Amino acid sequence: MGDISPIKTRPAGNPAPLRLEAAVLDWAGTVVDFGSFAPTQIFVEAFAEFGVAITLDEARGPMGLGKWDHIRTLCNDSAIATRFSLAHGHMPTDEDVTAIYNRFMPLQIAKVGTHSAMIPGALETIAALREAGMKIGSCSGYPRVVMDRVVALAAEAGYQPDCVVACDDVPRARPYPAQALRNVVDLGIGDVAACVKVDDTVPGIEEGHRAGMWTVALLMSGNTLGLPYEDYAALSDDARAHHREAISAGFAACRPHYEIDTIADLPVVVADINRRMASGERPQCV
C-alpha cells in the first residue's frame, strides 16, 4: 500500500488542504456486494410482476441513480416502454413507475441480505484510511429503509462508516451533489477538496465532481462488469485487460481522476492524491 501517513495540521494562512481528510464511499459494488447484484436482480423481478420482461443488462443501465429515478429511466427506454405498452395498453406513466417502485421496495428489503458480503480488501483498505486519520463517509442509491438494513449487515461484518446518506435523505440524489455534500457537513470537513468520492457508477462519479471532490472509479467490482467475485478472480489477465478497457471507455465522459479495479487498490491512489495536494493541486483544476 502507498504512504497514507496521518493528516498534518494545515499551516496558518494556507487556505488549501494539504491531504485528504475523508473518503466518501458508495455501497453496492464498492464496499459490499461484488458485482452489484442486490439492486439489479430485484429490478428484473419487480418488472416481471407487472408482466414486463427486462434483462439483467437492461436493469444495470441506470445504476447509481435513486431507485424511483432508476425505474423511470428504464421505463423511458423505448424497448422496455414498448413491452410495457403491449402488457398494459399504454406507455408507462409516473403512476406506473411508482407502482413498480412500491413493489420493488419490499422485494429489495427482503433480499438485500443475499448479496451483502464485504468486497475482498475493503475492510483492510478502510482500516488503512482510518489509521491515516481519514474519516469514512458513504452514500448510496438505496433509500433509507433499505440502507438501514445494509448498514446493519455491514456492521456485523466489521464495517461502520462515520456517515451514511441514503438517496431519499436529500431533495435530489446523485448525479446531483447533495449526498456527497451532506457527508462533508456531517463529517465536519472544512474543504470539499479534502474528500475523495469512490464509486462504481457514472452518476456516482458525476456526483463527486459536482461536489468538488477527487473521484475514483471502480472498474471491476461493480455494476458494469457485473460478475461474482469468484468469476472475476478466475478471469485471465487478457480477459481482465479487455474488460478494463471497455469499462474505462464507459467512464470517459465523466472523467474520473483515477480508475482502479477494486477498493483494495485505493490506498495507492490516496497516497498519490496526497502528493498532488501537497504540491498545490486541487480536484477542480485537473
Rank of each mutant, 00 (worst) to 15 (best):
Ile100Ser: 02
Arg103Gly: 14
Met105His: 11
Met105Gly: 13
Pro106Glu: 08
Ile109Gly: 08
Ala110Thr: 03
Ala110Trp: 11
Ala110Glu: 15
Gly113Gln: 07
Gly113Leu: 07
Gly113Ala: 09
Thr114His: 12
His115Asn: 10
His115Cys: 12
His115Ser: 11
Ser116Val: 09
Ala117Met: 14
Ile119Glu: 01
Ile119Leu: 12
Gly121Leu: 07
Glu124Gly: 11
Ile126Ser: 02
Leu129Trp: 07
Gly133Pro: 03
Gly133Ser: 15
Met134Gln: 06
Ile136Asp: 00
Ser138Phe: 08
Ser140Ile: 00
Tyr142Gln: 06
Pro143Val: 08
Met147Lys: 00
Asp148Glu: 14
Asp148Leu: 15
Arg149Ile: 15
Arg149Glu: 14
Ala152Ile: 07
Ala157Ile: 12
Tyr159Cys: 06
Asp162Tyr: 11
Cys163Gly: 07
Val165Glu: 02
Asp168Trp: 09
Asp169Phe: 04
Arg174Gly: 02
Tyr176Leu: 14
Ala178Arg: 08
Ala178Asp: 14
Val184Tyr: 09
Val185Phe: 13
Ile189Asp: 01
Asp191Ile: 02
Val192Arg: 03
Ala193Ser: 11
Val196Lys: 01
Val196Thr: 03
Lys197Gln: 13
Asp199Ala: 15
Thr201Glu: 09
Val202Thr: 09
Val202Lys: 04
Gly204Asp: 09
Gly204Met: 04
Ile205Cys: 08
Ile205Gln: 06
Glu207Gln: 14
Glu207Lys: 08
Arg210Lys: 13
Gly212Arg: 05
Trp214Asp: 05
Trp214Met: 05
Thr215Pro: 09
Leu219Arg: 02
Thr224Leu: 13
Leu227Trp: 04
Tyr229Ala: 14
